[in-house]
Structures are given as structure tokens and as C-alpha cells.
């Protein structure tokens, strides 16, 4: 168990493509970090540099205060879980788990004990003599986890481990990974493009975009205080509503329609205003902004209403009990608005 320190790490591929730019990140011992971002944001490259599968162009990665830039993956004492599981197809589940230990010269009795323990923890004991081909996706995923656990590594690295599973299994495996990591207390770095996985698993989320860190923070902090329009639109489902707006004397206007007043701490001028879907609610009778309903998505517990205010597309999340009309009046709480600089998209402090 070790802390991981990433200092000024960049990755430039031979063709000149810059995959990761100057990333700095301190991961505490036992912390669960989720790297999240759209495809091509460099999250997998960063993980693979920690694993040693990718060379580091500049900067340093250290695991447990040892700089590992030039250390072979096997000697870094990390374990990795791959998206396609990467189980050895010709070996039994037992051999899959034992292979890494055998290569390290662990005594046979010790291997037996460790494999048995991991198998019990993951409930894969009945399959130990089977080949991976004879297992379901979820079982294979467990074996891949088992292969990581038996090694008793300093860190777990997960590369989108759940994206080959069906939605239901994904939710249950997500829970198991979280509990397992808590129980073992092993530092973990988890890569995903699914913001829900990031929110539910992470101690801290790292949002990456274009090879750079956009924001690092605890899930709720990132959700409530997104550092940029990118983070705002990426974290949370439905995505945060973003619209061009004009601020004048504390009045916020979208397309000339004033939607909130009494806003303080924001300079007058053009901004991008962000509103969470749940922060738009029907207005009290006789007040509010006209909201033209376009279509509705029923989620059961919630009802997502897509529509527009002055031609700007907005989504609000309503309780399904409320009656609906084609045009309703909505209100927005001024203190729930997010403001971003027009152009850079950075969050404006209030």
C-alpha cells in the first residue's frame, strides 16, 4: 500500500501527438481515484504510464516514494484489471490467479492459500478449475479482479473494467469493487468514461480533457462546483444546462428574458450560465419565465422535461406528480446558478 505521486507528467507519441500534458496529482495511500473524461482525453495513457506499459516523455511517477519511471511493470508491484479482462485463455482460473505469483517465486503452499482466499472473497471458488471461455462476463471480471488481489499489490489500476458488462451487472460489480477496495485499503486508480461510475466509486474524481486535468475533487464538490463548462457538462446526468446569458446589475437574462435577479458577485457582461436540471422548478402562480415544452423523458422517479426558454434548450427534472402543460412558467433560484467566463469557460468566483 503506497501513495502515488505524479509530477509534471507528459506523454508525446512518436508522431508528435500530445496525449497527456503536464499532469500533477498526489494520490494518498488507500485512496480511490477515478480518472474520467471522454475518449481520447488521455486517461488511459496516464494509467498506463503509472503501470509502466507506456513510457513517460517527461515528468516523474513515484509509487511509495520510489520514482518508477524506468522500473519494469512487474517490479512496480502494481496490479491491473483490463477492460477485456486479458485472462490467459488456455489456463484454468486457478492458473490465471497463480501465474503472477509463480513468476515471483512464491512458495506453492503460499500460492494455494492466497488463491483460495481471493477466490472466497470473490465467490469464484466453484470455477477454479474452469477455463475463462466457460465463464460468463461477470465471472471473468471477478477472475480478473482475483488476479489483481492475489498479488497483494501496492496499487490497483483499473482500465474501464466494467464497460464490457451489461448495465445491471455493471451496477452490482461497481458496488463490489467499491467494497473490496475499502476492505483491502489498497490505493486504486480507476479509468472510466462513465461519469456515474466516477461519482459512485471515487474518493476523488480527476476530470481530464485533452490531456489536461480540468478538475480534481470529491464527487459532490465536483458536482456542485464544476471548475469549467466542460466539467459541468460532463459530470451529472442529465448534463448541466448551459446557456449564454447577460448579467446587468444582478439581473441574469437569457436571450433578453430575465430569469433570475439579485445575483451578487458577478461582473456585468456576457457570461455562460449553468443550471442543474433539478434547480429549475415550476414557478409560483403569476410569476416565472415561460418554458416551451418540447418532449418528455419518463425515468420513473423523475420526469425530464426538455424545452426552451427564448430558444435556448434547457432540461429540467420534475417530480412525476406535477401536472404538465405545453407551456409552463419556471423559476430558478439565484443562489443555485453557476457562472462561467464567456470564452474560456472557467468558473467565475462569486
Amino acid at each position: 500500500m503506497s501513495a502515488i505521486e505524479i509530477t509534471g507528467v507528459s506523454k508525446v507519441y512518436a508522431g508528435g501527438v500530445r496525449a497527456v500534458s503536464d499532469v500533477n496529482l498526489s494520490i494518498a495511500d488507500g485512496e480511490f481515484i477515478v480518472l474520467v473524461g471522454p475518449s481520447g482525453c488521455g486517461k488511459s495513457t496516464l494509467l498506463r504510464m503509472i503501470a509502466g506499459l507506456e513510457t513517460i516523455t517527461s515528468g516523474t511517477v513515484s509509487i511509495g516514494s520510489r520514482v518508477v519511471n524506468e522500473v519494469d511493470p512487474a517490479a512496480r508491484n502494481i496490479a491491473m484489471v483490463f477492460q477485456n479482462y486479458a485472462l490467459y485463455p488456455h489456463m484454468s482460473v486457478y492458473d490465471n490467479l497463480a501465474y503472477g505469483l509463480r513468476n515471483r517465486g512464491v512458495p506453492k503452499a503460499d500460492i494455494d492459500a492466497r488463491v483460495a482466499e481471493a477466490a472466497r472473497m470473490l465467490e469464484i471458488e466453484p470455477f477454479l478449475q474452469r477455463k475463462p471461455k466457460q465463464l460468463s462476463g461477470g465471472q471473468r471480471q471477478r477472475v480478473a479482479m482475483g488476479r489483481a488481489i492475489v498479488r497483494k499489490p501496492d496499487a490497483f489500476l483499473f482500465d474501464e473494467p466494467l464497460s464490457n458488462l451489461d448495465a445491471k451487472l455493471r451496477v452490482s460489480m461497481r458496488g463490489e469493487i467499491r467494497q473490496l477496495q475499502r476492505r483491502l485499503g489498497v490505493t486504486s486508480v480507476y479509468v472510466t468514461h462513465d461519469q456515474l461510475e466516477a461519482m459512485t466509486l471515487a474518493d476523488r474524481i480527476v476530470v481530464l480533457n485533452g490531456g489536461r486535468i480540468e478538475q480534481v475533487g470529491r464527487p459532490l464538490d465536483v458536482y456542485h462546483n464544476p471548475a469549467s463548462t466542460f466539467v459541468a457538462s460532463f459530470i451529472g446526468s442529465p448534463a448541466m444546462n448551459l446557456a449564454d446569458a447577460e448579467v446587468t446589475n444582478g439581473l441574469v437574462a437569457i436571450g433578453g428574458q430575465v430569469v433570475a435577479s439579485g445575483v451578487s458577485g458577478v461582473k456585468d457582461g456576457q457570461v455562460i450560465v449553468g443550471l442543474r436540471a433539478e434547480d429549475i422548478q415550476p414557478a409560483a402562480p403569476g410569476t416565472g419565465v415561460p418554458f416551451a415544452v418540447r418532449y418528455i423523458e419518463e425515468l420513473g422517479a423523475l420526469r425530464l422535461v426538455h424545452g426552451s426558454v427564448e430558444g435556448r434548450h434547457l432540461t429540467m427534472a420534475l417530480s412525476p406528480d406535477l401536472p404538465l402543460a405545453d407551456e409552463i412558467k419556471v423559476a430558478v433560484a439565484a443562489d443555485r446558478l453557476h457562472f462561467f467566463e464567456d470564452g474560456s469557460g472557467r468558473r467565475m468566483t462569486r
Partner: peptide, 26 residues
């Protein structure tokens, strides 16, 4: 799949070991 080779690398198998233990049986 390339991941097999990477998994073997992390499992401490050098090039010849990977060849003998993984590639040859496959």
C-alpha cells in the same frame, strides 16, 4: 489481444516466458 502481453508483463513474465507460457500454448 495486446492486453494479454501487458497482463503477462505485469505478472512478471519476460519475453521468453511470455512466449513459452502464453503464446506457444495459444
Amino acid at each position: 489481444p495486446e492486453e494479454l502481453m501487458e497482463a503477462a508483463r505485469i505478472d512478471g513474465a519476460g519475453p521468453l516466458k511470455f512466449f513459452r507460457d502464453i503464446l506457444l500454448p495459444l
